[in-house]
């Protein structure tokens, strides 16, 4: 391929885009709509997953210790928990601190819980344990429970299992939705590009008649498909960015407890990914449609 050829291909692609500008516009709009929906789906999934994993990482195990253990043994238990594979963090909570926490939580410091309880502290000493992988919590809890001196282990049995089932379900569903949307986009783009090619079938027939090779005809079409895909996805990314920026700004003010993902690295990767998807969709669509009209 010579430089003159490349220039000719790009020129042909640009001219064809302009001449069939209504159809080009239709294709770009279609691509933009598909990518936009895809982008929204991905953003929803990213945020849902962020919420899910923050929920998951909040899951912790509380191991209550038997009453009146000597301090030495308490410390030994803490060490032993720390040695178990999968333990991320072990914090000792003395019964004194537990009572103070309880006071804070219920009475916001206004009531003297100790007095109400008749000067006795009914709470045991405990360890709070975080797991490196939240999914390991149940098995980790079983191991902790076997340590002598540990009286009881709690981690929200039942609720945690349900939470994990829910997150798995959300993840699988989102993959299915995204795959379906991508398929729909490829189909739409293939159809629109087939229309472009169909409107140029006379030109393609003549090119073949004067001795054009199939690749000579395909190159401008591929460039055209790529440009359509990229332009459409660029529009979608811009709209998505503007919309998301607006959403983040208004939500953090009004409903601060929904933690929207605003990590620039994640967003850049998403934007790049969507652009790439647009380009690939454009080329795939052309590829599906192009060969059909080259058989002259």
């Amino acid at each position: 391929m010579t430089l003159a050829n490349i220039r000719f291909y790009c020129g042909e692609a640009a001219r064809s885009l302009f001449r069939n500008r209504l159809l080009s516009l239709a294709t770009v709009t279609t691509v933009a709509a598909c990518i936009l929906i895809l982008g929204i789906a991905v953003l929803v999934v990213v945020n849902a997953q962020a919420v899910m994993s923050s929920l998951e990482s909040n899951v912790e195990i509380v191991a209550f210790l038997e009453k009146d253990l000597p301090e030495q043994q308490q410390a030994a238990i803490g060490k032993e928990i720390g040695y178990i594979a999968g333990t991320k963090e072990v914090t000792f909570v003395s019964r004194e601190k537990a009572l103070r926490d309880l006071e804070k939580r219920f009475g916001q410091g206004k009531y003297n819980l100790r007095e109400t309880l008749g000067g006795k502290n009914p709470l045991p000493d405990s360890y709070r344990i975080k797991a490196t992988d939240p999914h390991q919590v149940p098995s980790l809890a079983r191991k902790v429970a076997r340590i002598p001196g540990v009286y009881k282990v709690r981690y929200g049995q039942g609720v945690v299992e349900k939470l994990f089932a829910a997150t798995r379900w959300v993840r699988n569903l989102s993959v299915v939705v995204i795959v379906l949307l991508a398929c729909a986009a490829v189909f739409l783009i293939a159809t629109t590009i087939r229309l472009t090619i169909f409107s140029r079938r006379k030109e393609i027939y003549l090119m073949k008649l004067v001795g054009a090779t199939n690749w000579f005809i395909r190159w401008p079409l591929f460039i055209e498909g790529l440009l359509l895909g990229l332009t459409g996805s660029l529009l979608a990314v811009l709209a998505l960015a503007a919309g998301y920026y607006y959403l983040v700004n208004s939500l953090t003010v009004s409903i601060a407890f929904i933690p929207l993902v605003t990590d620039t690295a994640v967003m850049t990767r998403l934007a790049g990914g969507l652009l790439a998807v647009g380009g690939v969709l454009g080329i795939t669509g052309t590829f599906i449609s192009a060969n059909r009209y080259l058989d002259v």
Binding site: T2, A4, N5, F8, R19, K202, E203, L206, M207, V210, G211, A212, F216
Partner: peptide, 24 residues
């Protein structure tokens, strides 16, 4: 005659030469 409506006479003739990769 099968000329391309959206190309000028010059472009229609030049088209056959572009296809075979001739230079400008």
């Amino acid at each position: 005659s099968k000329l391309l409506e959206n190309k000028t006479v010059f472009e229609n003739v030049a088209f056959a030469m572009h296809v075979v990769g001739a230079n400008r």
